[in-house]
Every structure is written in C-alpha cells, then in structure tokens.
Design a protein around this nucleic acid. Structure first.
Lengths: 341, 341
DNA sequence: GCTATAATTCTCATAATGAGTATAATACGG
DNA sequence: CCGTATTATACTCATTATGAGAATTATAGC
C-alpha cells in the first residue's frame, strides 16, 4: 500500500512500586541485518518498548491491538490506556535503512497497578523509568549530572553553531529546555529535552543512528558527537530504535495530565494512605511536594474520601486509608490535581 | 503489509474571521461503489476534511506529508501544526465495507491567520465550525436546541436501555457529557458529546453508518435511531466518514490547550486590539469572558505588550494595538492563558 | 457641547496557594 | 511506665489569584 509503510502499535506500560516509577521493556531484536554487521559496532541496546505490527483483520480498533500485545507479552490486563502519538519519521526503524518499508507506529500510554515483581512472562522486564532519563528526577536534589555533564556540553554545542542565527536558535532552545541560566526548569518539557540531547549528540542513540546510516551507505550529516564508545550511557540507558523518544513522550504526557486529571489513582490499590498517594505523584512528577498542602488539596478537592480503616506499618502514627472518589471526575473540571509547592 | 491497511493524513485547518471560527472542507467523494448504490439512499454528505494517503517515499515525516496536502489543496502554508490523534476503527472508511483495506488516518490540527475569503482554490471551502456542532456555541445563550431536541432525546435513550446496569451507565455518561440535570456543562468535552450523540443515534452519520452496513450485507446492531430522513441535519451538518469525530477531537484539543498555552496568537495578525483577541478566544471556547479580567490576565500575565499604535475604527474610544510577547512562552509555564469568568 | 459607544483603569470581596507551626498517635528503648 | 523518635494530621497566616463590577477616559456624530 502507498509505497510501502508498515503500521504498528507500541506500548509504554507504567506502574509505580513504592516510590519507583517503572516501565515494561522487552529484549530488542538485532537492528542490523547480518550482511551489514561489522565487528566494531556498538552493541545493540537490550531494551525495547513492547510492540507489534497492527493486524486489522484481528482487531476492531488500534487500542484493541495494543491491549492484545500487552496481554500476550506479559499477561497484564491494562487498566488505563491512552493514545499518545504516532511516530513515522524516516529511519525511525533501522530496517528502513536496509530496504525495509517506512515504519509507522502508534504509541500508547498504559497505567497498571503496581508491578508484579519477579517471575513474570518471558521477555518482559520492569525497569526504573529514570534509568532512561536520569536528568528528570529532581526528587532528592537537582541531578548532579546536569552541572557535571549536560550543561557544559550543551554550552559547547551552542557555541559550535555555524552562524549567529543558528547559535541564537540553539541558545534559545537549550535555555527553554534545560534552563541553562539556572532559573525556570519546566518539569513537563521531557520530550524537548530528550530531542535536544539527541540533536546535540549527547545520547548514545545519536551516535548509533549515525553509525547505522554509514553502514547503509548514506552519508550522515556531521553532527556534534560528544558521545564516544568510551562514555556510553553517560546520559541515561539507551533503547532500541526511537524507544526513548516514545518514552519521553509518555512521561511528558503523564506529567502534564497529572496536573488536571485524577489519573494517579489508576496506579494505586483500591485503598491507600495519603503518603502512598503522594509518593506516587512525586515519583512521576520527579519533584517533591509540600505534604500538608497536598493533603489539603486531595481532601478538600474531593478526590479522596476516608475509609475509617488505618494502616499501622508507618513507623509513627498510623495513617488513615483513603479511597478514590469516582464522582470527582464529574465535579470541578478545571480543578488542579496536584499543588505546586 | 500486515493484511492490508492504508495509512493517510487528515487536516483540520482552523482560522477565525472576526468572531466566526472556520474550518477548511473539501467536497467529498461518493462513499459507495456504484455496484452497491440504490435509489433511496441518503445523499452523500458534501463536506469532508482534506486528507490524502501518506506517501513515505516523498516525505521525511508525517507532518511534512500533511503540509503538502494543505498546500496542494488550498495554497495555504500552515503556521501551527500539531498532531491530534490517529483514527483506525474498523469501518471508519466505508470503502472497507466493500472490500477495501483498513483505513488508518493521522489527524492534525493546523492554525492559520484569518481566512482568505472568496475565490480560493478549487474544492476548498471555509465553513463555520459551529455548523457542525451547534450545541457547542454558548456565546450568546445556552443553545436552544439542547432543551428542544437533545436532552429529551437523550433521556429517552437512557430509558430505552435494556437492563438497569446499562441504564445507569447511559445516565452517567449523558450526565457527564451534557449536564442532563442542568449544572456542570464542561465546554471541553466536545468529543464525548459527539460520540454520545452518535451512539444514541441522534446524528445523521449514525443512520448513514447503519445504512451502509446493510448495503454491505452486514447486519448492523439495532441502535436507537431518532434520526430519520425527514429530520436530517437537525443536530448539525454531517460530514463524510468520521470527519465530525476528527473535527470534534480538534475542537476539544483546541479548547483544552487555549487554557494553558498561548496558541491564540497563531490565529491573529501581528498586531491586534485586546477586543479582537478576546473575540477569537471566545469564538473557540464557545463562551463569553469578562472583559476587564481578560485584559488583566493578558497584560499582567505577560502574554502581550502594547505597541503604542491605536486602532480608531472601534466606534468608541480608540483601542491600543498589542503584539504577542514571544518570551511569554518561556516564563511562568503553569500560567493560565484564559480566565474563567 | 451633548450623547452614545467602546476602551481602559480601579476597587473589592473571596478563594486558592505556598509555607509554616502545632498537635496527635503510634513504636521502641530503657 | 516514661521519654524519645517518628510519622500523621490539624491549624494558622500572609500573599496572590480570581470573579465581579463601578468609575473614568477617549473617540465619533449630531
């Protein structure tokens, strides 16, 4: 059809265990056909997002196709599923470089309750989300690698621009995404940051993509590759294909939605303490929240109601168990769902 | 090629002329192959959203493909383009009913400055957005057709449910989308409302879809069809295929985004009065805003700055011309972009 | 100069927010 | 049984944001 494009679905399946946000990954297939392999290549990334070709004859909707992928892969039945974005850039799948069709995939975000630990299905593995984006976790402190690695490298990248106009553009983008001058980090700009790092040659994928283009006989445009073989993974764990781009899109959407829709509850058991709830929100937003104000917003905002039961394994005063108020979805639509401080 | 699916792109191109929100439509092709046509069919809807099959060999990205569609169609060069959603439900394109492949389309929202009136390109036409969703325009008053037609019909639909559980589900959905009991209309739930009307058989498309399934020899599930040939278009102007669903998705996104990102400015000339700005926001949000507070938010929120020039064709005191402050994008990310009252 | 019209500025009560301090209920070591 | 550490929960307060409206200003047309 249409000169060959292949449609698939890709899942970003997220859970939070305690205060660790986790995502399902599978082992990646080798990205380079045997005929093109060479001995000195970067090892292929082990992690990929679960996905499959979309089979229209089997499924009434794309989302059904996605649910099937998740079930077949890990036995997980997804609670909350939301379409994210459709990725169709040229060469997003390396197979296209070696004669394959254009690969287009519809990315989905799915939320599940906690992570079934340990011995689950074959290839599926849960990984810490921040392994892929260490610069996004500001819960304990401003991530050290920002000042140690990212910002200096970005400044060099800005300076290395040819022409003043291009330098200004780079400066503005770096400022907006990474708050170069220290003020104004926007926790939601996850995708913008990842794409900037890719463009500046600071993630392993940038190096790999260039190498693949060379192998395929395309002369890649010369990008600034700070990343060498000897410093792989300095900026987060890589993923196969454009996996990290899709993952960044998911985290960005999640952080944005958290603020005005009560979706955290999809990640929690039926009853929970306010502290558990807060830890989950913090895990995803990557920031710390003011405990008392968080509690105030949840209760007076009508998001939760007390059950009367208590949890006493707290180490201090027992905490009351709450449940989500489903009617909250109806009321006060423009209510914020998490406070700032 | 995974059992045959056809990938396309579809554009929702929006402009606002004065206080009228408009969208580009093209003439629709006949939806039923000649061999299946019958004399007593509903006339095919004249309006369709512009779109085309995606040609991967021509375009590096899906968005490039979309821009090309828009240019070839109307000579429009799009200022602002945003991917909306990918539509891939079975039978969304009637051709699939008659042996065609599954049709999947990536919908885009595009904003352009004003509408080039009159003699534009071949098939393209600008139409009032609210022709398709008359129940969404609350600027002058609560739309009369809500109480006259929609709510009574929805109540009948709720009552007609088989089984109490299903009735409760319908009741809750109708309440959430249309504020059945009078309180709590949420201007953002555009898609939910359209889909509910479709499911309740209150838009012409519901009738048409059933008719098409009959023609194709599929026995359609019996839905409640309030809509008859003799009352077509009572609930808005129909569109070919799932055009109105895509359009509803676009309006919903637009209304949502308006609240926290300064995108209105994409629709305005470089300088404008605050009244013009307000009229455009109102045109899209479908509500009236408090003039003084709107002004306060725009100025103190840093979205606009005065130019010193004035517009004197106002009929009263001349209004100062303002321009958009691009830096506003950087500052205060969580700032609201329109006030409530 | 008077009037109609619309833009603009100001005022004010109320609610929401950010940041604390104070108090309550448990476990545990002595 | 008491004191202490620990965590949950309640309460306070200053500041800002919001919704609503009155008052003032600048034009056009008679």
């Amino acid at each position: 059809m249409t000169g060959g494009s292949q449609l698939g679905v890709t899942a970003v399946i997220v859970a939070v265990a305690g205060s660790t946000p986790r995502v399902v990954t599978v082992r990646s297939a080798f990205e380079v056909p045997p005929a093109f392999r060479r001995g000195d290549m970067l090892p292929p990334p082990r992690d990929a997002l679960p996905g499959a070709a979309f089979a229209p004859e089997r499924f009434r909707t794309l989302q059904e196709g996605l649910r099937a992928v998740a079930e077949e892969l890990s036995g997980l039945s997804l609670r909350y599923v939301e379409q994210l974005y459709t990725f169709g850039d040229r060469h997003r799948d390396p197979h296209e470089l070696f004669g394959g069709p254009r690969s287009v995939t519809v990315g989905y975000l799915a939320l599940v309750r906690d992570a079934p630990t340990g011995g689950e299905a074959e290839a599926a593995e849960w990984r810490d989300l921040y392994d892929y984006f260490p610069w996004e976790d500001w819960r304990d402190e401003r991530p050290a690698l920002l000042d140690a690695i990212v910002l200096p490298a970005l400044r060099r990248w800005v300076q290395a621009a040819t022409g003043e106009a291009e330098r200004d553009r780079r400066q503005e983008r770096a400022q907006l995404a990474f708050a170069l001058d220290g003020e104004g980090w926007d926790s939601e700009r996850v995708l913008e940051r990842y794409e900037l790092l890719h463009e500046a040659g600071l993630v392993v994928e940038a190096f790999r993509d260039r190498e693949l283009e060379r192998l395929a006989g395309i002369d890649p445009p010369d990008i600034n590759t700070e990343v060498r073989r000897d410093m792989p993974r300095a900026l987060g764990r890589p993923m196969a294909r454009d996996g990290r781009r899709i993952l960044a899109t998911a985290l960005e959407r999640l952080r944005g939605k958290l603020k005005y829709r009560p979706i955290v509850f999809e990640l929690l058991p039926p009853t929970f303490t306010l502290n558990q709830l807060q830890l989950v929100v913090e895990a995803l937003s990557g920031t710390r929240l003011h405990k008392q104000n968080f509690r105030r917003l949840m209760i007076s905002g009508g998001f939760v109601e007390p059950t009367g039961a208590f949890e006493s394994q707290t180490g201090g005063r027992p905490a009351e168990l709450f449940r989500f108020r489903r009617q909250a979805i109806h009321e006060r639509t423009s209510a914020r769902a998490i406070p700032e401080g």
